[in-house]
Design a binder for these strands. Structure first.
Lengths: 156, 156
DNA sequence: GTAGATTGAGTTGTGCACAATCTGTTTCTG
DNA sequence: CAGAAACAGATTGTGCACAACTCAATCTAC
């Protein structure tokens, strides 16, 4: 067996990839009784916290484009959790708002954050603030790489 | 405007979700010249490091089931980067190994880890070992939640 | 040795992520 | 004002993630 390997980006990236998948699996279990997926839940949380908003705004908050959001919102609308209405002022804009049922879920799902925090060991084994800062840093760095790969491979 | 919000699981989970997506986007840019996706790259890395192995073993390493791996491997095989051969000893087992071209990529892509590490700020702004430990902890915790949601919601 | 359980891959169906493209507005500009 | 450009959202196509299922090969018990 070889000696301890150095920490490579691959290990970190793979760990990130695994952790994110494990998280959506955890939420899958928790949300299953409501027939919600994790991204659907995130959309609802955004609407609850920030109020009704356009698809574009929602996309900016969640860093998702209409190719992802449109079908997702269509499913939420089919399940009568959100409503989509084209703006009168600007017919290009579609305003998304929770339905009455959608708002009810806010109460029904209010126990989730604490439950997941408990599962995570937040504030206990995990320093939430520091982890958050690190993750934000990674997100920013990786966006920079995605936008300009040559910046890290050696400019051509 | 409310005072500073506490760190909630939602913030951490969303940050994780964003960071993971930003990472695959970064790899998408970097791997685009080779027509590889990030999961395909991960499979190749696993084969390079650990050598040819069965679909099951690959699935255990990457925590993916055959529903994900089978089509992914079929695409890698179509692109002549890996080969699949049913075992003589046990006809249920399919052994996956890199082709000559697949092995060539190991050299061609050898610059990636350092490039991404540079982009991440690994060892610089980010403590890789600690981050890795935290991510492994999260993965384990979330698997526990996924396997038994009642453990965090209060047993029914 | 055969019946039944287990295993390893593959297939099917749903949903998310994202690039590319399209459509209908709106706004900018000549 | 007319045409160009920009914009918001939806659609299409590819690939991943995962649940549920199928199927053949193998293993276990009897």
């Amino acid at each position: 067996m070889p000696a301890a390997k150095p920490i490579t980006d691959e290990m970190v990236c793979f760990a990130l990839y695994s952790a994110a998948r494990a998280t959506t699996q955890a939420y899958r279990s928790l949300l299953e009784p409501w027939g919600l997926t994790y991204p659907q839940y995130l959309v609802l949380v955004t609407l609850w916290v920030e109020g009704p908003q356009s698809v574009k705004d929602l996309g900016e908050r969640m860093q998702l484009d209409s190719g992802t959001l449109s079908p997702l919102l269509a499913r939420l609308e089919r399940d009568e959790l959100v409503e989509r209405r084209r703006s009168d002022a600007d017919a290009r804009v579609v305003r998304v708002s929770p339905t009455a049922r959608g708002d009810e879920l806010r109460t029904e799902l209010a126990h989730l954050p604490a439950a997941v925090a408990r599962g995570l060991g937040l504030g206990d084994t995990v320093d939430g603030a520091q982890l958050l800062a690190t993750l934000h840093g990674i997100t920013a760095s990786m966006h920079a790489v995605a936008d300009d790969p040559s910046s890290v491979t050696g400019a051509p």
